[in-house]
Design a protein around this nucleic acid. Structure first.
Lengths: 383, 383
DNA sequence: TTGAAAGCGCTACCAG
DNA sequence: CTGGTAGCGCTTTCAA
């Protein structure tokens, strides 16, 4: 082993082509098949011959069968692809996506398949990169409706598992009972006595707009699970006698700073909401900070709820009331489905359960609303 | 697009083989070359012909050139592989690894190359999976010395970038000035007046042993950066007149619970250490909790330091004094080197700077040591 | 502008 | 146990 390491750092012998199975076969004086067998079916030849072949191969600097060629021949890539957000790198900054990957990776290890992270460029690129990815199946994670990458995968006749969205026929769907989650939040807040609520949602439509959301925009939302969460929320609220029209909705990028900004905007409305429902924990965590900047105490002056139960939610101050979803579990189930599809067995859709986790960020509304500090802007946010 | 989606969900026409370039060529009545050109070199044929070819292909359900075949022909995989820990899924539970991946992913997107996560089984498997991975280059992240996967990659003559360790000739190294980091911690603590220190290190050798570490074990440590951090610490301590022999070292798995256990063990020694140096933030965060369980206040009764500056370090209570390393930056630099290697240009080693970040987990040692509660065990840890 | 020929490097099959 | 043959599906000369 040590020699080959040194070798590979050295100069490749001038003029010599990269050795292949044929090179080795010729050197040993056997056929290509036999050399192939030496690597892949040791029981098909005598140990001596095998050893002789392997030794010659080593001497020639033959690195073993070329994976590309073998895979072409076998018709299997030995890898599954995963489609994340537009910018692959964003996914790693998102706890929920990372947890999902952890689960998916677990199944890939079990199956000894590699996991290919496919970077999705914007627009047409997105489809072409999927067309060129060397994978046996595709897992699409939380993509907006009508994303061309999903169609591209389907065009290639690859088995596709869609997680969270979009819902597309001819794919296996793995998602959550988002609607139930929304409903649970509504019931919890209504039971505490809240009547004036506001909602913070992540980017609904990719047109760069942020701010207040009306019904039209809501129904044009690109993400399946956003629509579901909101629909559940509305159902629950209306069941409790709180008209949906009284609920303000603010749309922001899905990060904490944006969540804080949304809170600042919503909390200066009159009458001020007594509860902020964020449909992601990131936004909720930011909202708590935003409220604090305005001098409001959570939960005494304001209740805040999240969605997802990312690890940070439990550790936050105060610990966040949120809707737990099986983050890692979603990944393992997606992996299960992927490999079922690959084996040709049934891969039914999976709707994973959610659960309201009541922590300390929610409480009954204050008897009389606290005043809001007006001397703060977002500046000190990261301190 | 819509039709093809429906199609692919339907039954594949019985007996019909999967269409290839040749199928389409025959149907249109042109050569395979021309069909290939229709996809890859639109300028090589008339728009009309191209459109006719593409239309026929669509009609036949031809999904475009097969990536596997194209790649074999071109000799490029269009992907770089990354080797993480034994269990791929563990990596996603480790903030430092995730941040590294974020950086690496960023460069892969820029280059429009896929990122292949290669699951490393134990033992021989580790090498074989590397031998079979279809990638153009390999990035090995924080692997122990003499890991067979690195040799396997080198045997395949793939360009290799090693991050953190092991240091192997014929590879490009991207790492940190770990030694300087260790030294900085030592100086900081010595300057505060600490004299009795203990150290908590992650798994040094994979033999399942935990607990007190002697010099022999220390020098047998498998990870390059652990050795460096400790060497720097020793240097700094000795320069401050604190003999290395007085320093207790405890080895544990790299997670918070284990860190708490290490702290419980170390803090019941007599004389009790006034400062705990952990060589990872995970261990340090756990150590703080462990100390607290014993009724000790950090930093009043005990100082604790970490290493890495993962995001949680700043958010912890108290915020952790630690050595910051450019987590994401390490990933982008590794990516830069990888693509430089792929282009055949120079890819020099990179030693990234570290920086001591003093927060609130360190303070001068207490005038008189507080008593330790003896009625607690690790049970309530996760509460 | 188009096409025929020649592989990329490998493994499945079947005969010996 | 060994070897010849026949591709996997594509792209790249080079000639027409």
């Amino acid at each position: 082993m040590a020699e080959s390491v040194k070798q590979s750092g050295g100069v490749r012998e001038r003029g010599t082509r990269k050795p292949t199975l044929a090179t080795v076969a010729e050197a040993v004086g056997v056929s290509r098949t036999t050399v192939s067998n030496a690597y892949n079916r040791p029981d098909q030849l005598t140990p001596e011959l095998r050893e002789r072949i392997l030794a010659t191969a080593r001497g020639l600097g033959y690195p073993g069968p070329d994976p590309g060629a073998r895979r072409l021949r076998k018709g299997r890539a030995g890898a599954v692809g995963v489609l994340l957000t537009e910018r692959l790198s964003y996914a790693f900054a998102d706890s929920a996506a990372v947890a999902f990957l952890e689960g998916l990776a677990r199944r890939c290890e079990d199956a000894a398949e590699a996991l290919v992270l496919i970077p999705l460029g914007r627009g047409d690129e997105a489809a072409s990169v999927v067309r060129e990815a060397f994978v046996d199946a595709i897992c699409a994670y939380s993509l907006p409706d009508r994303h061309p990458a999903v169609d591209a995968a389907l065009d290639r006749r690859l088995p596709v598992v869609v997680v969270d969205g979009p819902r597309v026929t001819a794919t296996t769907f793995v998602g959550l009972d988002d609607r139930e989650g929304g409903r649970a939040v509504a019931e919890h807040l209504a039971a505490l006595g809240h009547e004036r609520l506001a909602v913070i949602v992540p980017t609904l439509v990719f047109d760069g707009r942020e701010g207040r959301v009306d019904d039209a925009r809501l129904s044009a939302a690109s993400y399946h699970n956003d629509r579901e969460r909101l629909a559940g929320l509305r159902q629950g609220l209306e069941a409790a006698g709180i008209p949906w029209q009284t609920v303000l909705i603010e749309e922001r990028s899905n990060n904490q700073e944006a969540g804080a900004g949304a809170a600042r905007s919503l909390l200066t409305e009159t009458p001020r909401p007594t509860a902020l429902v964020a449909t992601t924990d990131q936004l909720a965590l930011g909202a708590v900070r935003g409220a604090r900047e305005l001098g409001l105490d959570v939960p005494a002056d304001l209740s805040v709820t999240g969605f997802d139960d990312i690890p940070e939610a439990a550790r936050a101050q105060p610990p966040l009331t949120t809707v737990r979803q099986p983050l890692v579990g979603k990944g393992t189930v997606a992996g299960d489905r992927l490999f079922e599809l690959l084996e040709g067995s049934e891969a039914p859709d999976a709707l994973l359960p959610v659960e309201l986790v009541v922590r300390d960020s929610t409480a009954p509304p204050p008897a009389s609303p606290a005043p809001v500090r007006t001397d703060v802007r977002g500046s000190g946010f990261l301190a």
